[in-house]
Amino acid sequence: MPKDALVNASAPVSAVGSWSRVSEMQAKLHRWAAADHGRRFDDLFNLVHVELGYVLTRLNQVMHSWANYFKHAVAKGVFCMLENFAWRRVIRMLQTRHHWNWTDVRRRFTTPSGQWRPITAGEIALRPVSAIPVTRYRYRGNTIPSPWPLDHA
C-alpha cells in the first residue's frame, strides 16, 4: 500500500492485520499533521495511541517556539493558560489511554506532600511555558546613539 494513499474504511479487516492498519493510519495522520502546521494541537491530542515521548517532544517544540516568538509582548498570563491547557489535555489523553479516573491521576502525579510531579516519558518532560521570561524593554545603557554631537571642550 502506498504511504500517501487514502484509507479505505470499507475494506475487510482481519484480526492479524488490524494493528498494522492502525499503525499505517497513525503514520499517515502524523504526516498530515507535519504538513498542516495550523492543526498541530488537534492532531496530537486526537491520536491517543501515539507514544507519550513523541507527544511531549512535539508539544514542547510547538509551545516553546510560540512562546519565544511572543515573549516580547505582555503574554505571561497567556503562557500560564497555555501551559494549563496543554497539561490538562495530556492528562485527559493519559486518562483515555490507561482508563484512569482522577484518583489514579492524583496517585500517579503527586508526591506524598501533595505537590504535582511533571508529566514525563523517560527523560522527556512537559516543560513549563510560563518559565520563559517576558522581556518587555531591554536596558541598553550607553549603546543607544545620541542624536546630538558631543562637545569635547
Rank of each mutant, 00 (worst) to 15 (best):
L47K: 09
A75Y: 01
S10W: 00
L44I: 14
R136Y: 06
A15Q: 11
V50I: 11
K76R: 05
N142L: 14
P112N: 12
R127I: 06
P128Y: 01
T96L: 12
K76L: 02
V134K: 04
A73G: 08
P128F: 01
R88S: 14
R140W: 03
A9S: 02
F79D: 03
D4E: 15
Q26N: 13
A11H: 04
F85V: 03
W100S: 05
L126W: 05
A5M: 05
R136M: 09
A34H: 06
V78M: 08
G53L: 02
H152V: 09
V55L: 11
L82P: 00
L150T: 11
L59M: 14
A86R: 07
S23A: 11
V74T: 15
P118C: 09
Q61I: 04
G114W: 05
G17R: 05
V134W: 00
T103P: 01
E24K: 11
N60Q: 05
L6F: 00
P145G: 12
K3D: 07
R39D: 12
V50D: 14
F109Q: 10
H152D: 15
L82A: 13
P12A: 03
T143L: 10
I144T: 15
F85Y: 05
A35I: 00
P118I: 05
L52V: 11
A131W: 01
P145C: 10
K3S: 04
H98P: 00
T57S: 15
E24N: 11
H37D: 14
V62L: 10
A34D: 15
S18P: 00
A9G: 00
A33S: 12
H37K: 10
Q26G: 07
R136Q: 13
A15M: 09
L29E: 14
R97F: 09
S20C: 01
